[in-house]
């Protein structure tokens, strides 16, 4: 596969390490009342769609960017590639 890195352009997927669902960005609040339940869902519950999937890839053999890659799991078509940091900020994460 070829991943079109937002900074470096098209790179072979061999340069990357795959992590999993991009929902891992949404780490729950540790002080929430139901923190244990939230962390359970965060860590163990995943959708497994046949189709579009937002997922985290790490450019380990490259610039060490974490990317959010939107990929069709059926066709392997890659629809968008974003810097995970931008996605995280857009989802309200900061410090």
């Amino acid at each position: 596969m070829i991943i079109n890195h937002p900074i470096l352009g098209p790179r072979d997927s061999q340069e990357f390490t795959y992590l999993g669902d991009a929902s891992l960005i949404d780490r729950p609040d540790w002080q929430a009342e139901d923190a244990a339940d939230q962390f359970h869902d965060y860590l163990y519950l995943r959708d497994n769609p046949a189709g579009e999937h937002r997922e985290l890839w790490f450019h380990e053999q490259g610039d060490r960017s974490w990317l959010v890659v939107t990929r069709n799991t059926v066709t392997h078509e890659i629809l968008t590639v974003e810097l995970a940091r931008d996605v995280a900020r857009a989802r309200g994460r900061s410090k």
Partner: peptide, 19 residues
């Protein structure tokens, strides 16, 4: 060594992007 670095980069970029 590799895994810890990867996890730390994950935290830095994905969990605490403004640190």
């Amino acid at each position: 060594a590799v895994l810890v670095y990867r996890n730390m980069e994950f935290a830095r970029q994905c969990l605490f992007p403004d640190m």
